[in-house]
Write a protein that binds this DNA or RNA. Structure first.
Lengths: 190, 190
DNA sequence: ATCGATGACAACAGATGCTGTCATCACATA
DNA sequence: TATGTGATGACAGCATCTGTTGTCATCGAT
């Protein structure tokens, strides 16, 4: 018999998500999360550096995107490489049920929204480095990534609302939308 | 004789910036900032809702951009309206000396970088609403704003590094760079 | 089979961020 | 003189997060 129940980290994650859903992020204390998971407050901080991080642990998306960009055909344009990488990332977002609950909890708390933004920024930083490895100049790499993230947000937002479409389809469609938006306005229309 | 020294808020801001520069954000306490400014910790929280906000108070940039977008020529494309609004915002960023110190302090602290991102997101939200007033569909407005922010970051970064160029020049130049980046690659180059 | 190292956790103490509440005191006004 | 207003101080209190130490299973080596 093991001395402790297994999967302490997973128990903390599940307890936190349910408590945040039930009573909000600010109104649940770390001690309460730990108690619900059968642990002490101090043990919580062994697994997560702070209260918000319990919803953000793991970096599968970042490692996936970086790997895809580094393995991409060198003939591809940086934007193309990023967007095709994004198109293959839909497996990371499953199960959709969990993702939707998480998105709702994050949107309901400014503190969690803040953390969400910086996690996205971390992914962006990693992708900037990946583009630099491909020979893109740093300032330009940052710019390309910001544009690609704009496309990614648009495409994944559509993907969440429309479960039938495939992510890579939506990415391609959004890229078209981008070209149209930045094109100089039609000089004279009929 | 006034009972208290004037400009308590300004004294707190200046004390905070200098202390953050000297010893870092995490290692300076609110009590220390208040003491340096000749106030108590409790008074600090009367002027700023939390420790980070002492570097972020004020929303001149947001109100300027929103006003410019709402006053823009209805014939302009959304992207054009945003970028021309940005081109006139350089006065907000002065004095450049102060801005540079602030940028360095923010970059040195993850907690401040987090807050910086959410302030940018707040501006983005306000601009989304402004575009919706112009009749842009919400999802598309969000997308356009994200792209415009990518351009803005690129252009202001160049502006900080090159004091001679004017911001609107750099914005136009970055817009060209964007069109080039998203254009389909040249099919066959002799 | 015993012993020591390691790992997972609890218990305790403390610094700091942030909030609620009330008293204080100069100043304005009547 | 009396009274109100507004900025501030004083004090108490909760929550987040950290440092440190002790306990007890498990594992490997002797």
């Amino acid at each position: 018999m093991p001395r402790w129940e297994p999967d302490a980290q997973g128990r903390l994650k599940r307890a936190a998500l349910e408590l945040f859903e039930a009573q909000g992020f600010e109104r649940t204390s770390v001690a309460q999360i730990a108690r619900t998971a059968g642990l002490t407050e101090r043990s919580f901080y062994r697994y997560f550096p702070d209260k918000r991080e319990v919803l953000f642990a793991g970096d599968e998306l970042q490692t996936h995107l970086v790997a895809q960009v580094e393995a991409a055909d060198p003939g591809l344009t940086p934007i193309e490489a990023l967007l095709t990488a994004l198109g293959t990332a839909d497996e990371i977002f499953r199960p959709r049920e969990f993702l939707l609950r998480r998105v709702r909890v994050i949107a309901a708390s400014p503190a969690l929204a803040e953390r969400d933004l910086i996690k996205l920024a971390d992914i962006a930083d990693a992708l900037v480095r990946a583009l630099e490895h491909r020979g893109v100049e740093p300032g330009k790499a940052r710019f390309i990534i910001d544009v690609a993230i704009a496309v990614a947000r648009r495409a994944t937002s559509r993907w969440l609302a429309d479960p039938d479409a495939t992510l890579s389809e939506l990415v391609a469609q959004t890229a078209d939308e981008l070209r149209e938006a930045v094109a100089p306005p039609a000089p004279t229309v009929g």
